[in-house]
Design a protein around this nucleic acid. Sequence first.
DNA 1: ATTTTATCGATAAAAAATTATCGAATAGGC
DNA 2: GCCTATTCGATAATTTTTTATCGATAAAAT
Lengths: 218, 218
Amino acid sequence: MGNEKELLNVSKATIGRLPAYHRYLQEKLAAGEKTVSSTAIAEDLHLNAVQVRKDLSAIAREAGKPKLGFAVADLIADIDRFLGYDNLNDAVLVGAGGLGSALAGYGGFKNYGLNIVAAFDADPARAGTEIGGIKVFPADELARLVRRLNVLIGIIAVPKEAAQGVADELIRGGVRAIWNFAPVHLNVPENIAVKNEDMAASLAILSKRLAEILNSEK
Amino acid sequence: MGNEKELLNVSKATIGRLPAYHRYLQEKLAAGEKTVSSTAIAEDLHLNAVQVRKDLSAIAREAGKPKLGFAVADLIADIDRFLGYDNLNDAVLVGAGGLGSALAGYGGFKNYGLNIVAAFDADPARAGTEIGGIKVFPADELARLVRRLNVLIGIIAVPKEAAQGVADELIRGGVRAIWNFAPVHLNVPENIAVKNEDMAASLAILSKRLAEILNSEK
DNA sequence: ATTTTATCGATAAAAAATTATCGAATAGGC
DNA sequence: GCCTATTCGATAATTTTTTATCGATAAAAT
């Protein structure tokens, strides 16, 4: 049912901005606005209007209308569809410590198409408990359960020393995508997707910008 | 004491990769290796060797040596200096819930030059407690304390509804950089640096890559 | 001492991403 | 019904980022 257009020509940069548009559009929807222009989005989100237009046209089914802009509800649906927010992907969470609990406790992932079905922890004391309504299993059941549940996404929230081992186990269980919160580079086969949530990198960028700003003032 | 070279010509993309190099180099240092080549780094981190060389030469004081590569210890020191890992910046954390506690509990930020000196929470029950060794203050003292402590960095880990208000208060207190973990776009003056930790965006990129991989297999 | 080889830095080429420009379309006011 | 102002989409120009190429250099091997 051909929507081949979609899969092509959508850059990583664009994909990275789509969630921000999505949030913005939902605000507008809640405020009762029917349409929104790329100009307005760009201004509010501090982006370039052409860029917004390009991003949106890459995933929108309906073209924008001159003088009015885009239909808010349609755009939301388009992004939902494109990013898969409308059908849940199962995931497992490894590490039920501080960060793991925080991630489990944040219910919002469901809105982003992510459904955490089980958690794991190496500490036997944590097995059998629950975090954010998700059952915690002992780490040695990881690969087996992942395989049984047919889960394709693993979230790593363990100390850095343990991260590579966890990744190996996840992959052994059949996981194909890893969201890594541990501050280490993971070594994985080519056909496994890894996204590092590198807080140090974010922080580096922030503090460089801060330095620039302070610098430009004196 | 001229190192003007540094501040120029170091792209955001490069800055974003430096922390990964830093971690890698520390591993090598721990393993007792004195030198490392861009080729080796590139291979292990799955990057392009020219890119690595360019990134490193942008911040390195000593040039690499043919046939040997770069001096591990020197490079680490260079990155430390460039990213400010060697002198701590004070920050406050707003939101002592799940995510806030997790961030406070992660002691590692000190290694990245960030020193969290106080936390705040709107819930009076949390005021007076500690998270990860950091005192929690009532939210209404935010601006005053930030100003008194002369803190320039604020970390927002509150529910999205509260985030804009917190940002405003932080700025009122004199904060100049905001690390925002709430899934909203913050509206701030131009001379304030904001870095959004947009997990939805990361997730979007990860799941698109996953989809690609699965797609390429069938 | 000479040759080989791995690596560097510099420069050039290619690719990707952002931004500018402009004619066409149309909603809303006159 | 006709202007006017706003927005769109398409195309082009620009900028940024990544990757390729190549001569020079120095460690290691012969």
